[in-house]
Write a protein that binds this DNA or RNA. Structure first.
Lengths: 192, 192
DNA sequence: CGGGCCTTTGACTGGTTTCAACTTCTGTGG
DNA sequence: CCACAGAAGTTGAAACCAGTCAAAGGCCCG
């Protein structure tokens, strides 16, 4: 339990054993069954979730259509940060694509850790910085590359997601219809 | 000098006068003429830049076409964070749309401030968190809203940018051709 | 084994891009 | 200070590409 969480943590900010024990007290384990919600639109997001194993998706619903904005597999962190920090209702849903084990940091725990553990603030800063950089690159390729390139990049960057997630969800993540993605795949297959 | 910088800083993390003086030592003022580069693709990004006044844009070039990924007016912060943190060559250009006054935080200053000024780390964390949230919302509206909605949202959220920046750059920011944006504007004007 | 979801395929539609021409505006040099 | 060249914005026509709607086949799960 918490193995992967601390592995990732230590990669960014090395911790002593005591620090690790200290932090452990603030963490909450949680299991989610496939299709179960971690967060529903309209609720306030009360946690930052780290995926020990399994898979989640985060998505917005607009005009009855789902638009996936993020996947989270093992080692990833997921939350509706806007709702988490402001206390406003969430604009996204988060649910499980597989049976999943999570490590949760509640808002209270987050605030306590910020006060008492300087390395926690550093970890958070680095975590969000990386997330920001990744998001900016995604946005850039969204507006500057042709769809085929974007799909190729995606499969190269996240082969595990391609394996485990249904194609229509990948289409949604890319802002395409399932039909269009299907045709793109066909085209790429014939290209060889 | 530095007025707006510290105003924004204090909004997020209140500083004592001493702290402010302390931080001031690490800051570098810089002026940029219209069209002048702050950063060119391929160079390593050595600063985080805060805009005291004026306007910048950050953009990628792909197949000879410019794709603007961000504007920065007074009070905004801009950088190629990937390049800044990793030391890898920048993938973006940053240049001035108007004569501009900047406050620069160099990499050295950044690292010193992180070591010596706990409130600087907090400030950075909050800055990047906000940037991340804003970027996520932009991405969401990119993939879930029709173009007209997106343009309306943009004009409502950033009327100052619409005023000061040429339309073809706004088109680029939205991932459209100038012609398409022109037609959308015409359509919206007729709607009333 | 059956039902429902997922993926694929086809035909059609609609919106965006592209290319080109024309107008307006701006800034620069004579 | 005017003139002119270049940039920016608008408009039109044609080509292209993604979306929509509908249907069929495959596969997984109960």
């Amino acid at each position: 339990m918490y193995n992967l969480f601390f592995q990732k943590y230590n990669e960014k900010v090395p911790l002593s054993d005591e620090e690790q024990e200290q932090i452990k007290k603030y963490l909450t384990p949680k299991k989610l069954r496939k299709k179960q919600y971690l967060l529903q639109e309209g609720d306030v997001c009360k946690v930052i979730a780290f995926v020990e194993n399994g898979a989640l998706r985060e998505y917005a619903v607009e005009n009855g259509k789902e638009h996936i904005i993020q996947f989270a597999l093992e080692g990833w962190t997921i939350s509706d940060l806007f709702s988490f920090f402001t206390g406003e209702p969430a604009t996204y849903h988060i649910d499980a694509l597989e049976d999943t084990e999570l490590v949760l940091i509640t808002k209270d725990a987050h605030e306590e850790l910020l006060k008492t553990q300087p390395k926690y603030e550093t970890y958070m800063r680095l975590l969000i910085t990386n997330a920001y950089i990744a998001l900016q690159r995604r946005l850039t390729s969204n507006i500057s590359l042709p769809i085929e390139e974007r799909y190729i990049n995606f499969t190269e960057k996240y082969p595990d997601i391609v394996q485990r997630v249904p194609q229509h969800m990948i289409a949604s993540y890319m802002g395409l219809t399932p039909e269009t993605l299907s045709r793109i795949r066909k085209k790429l297959a014939n290209r060889k």
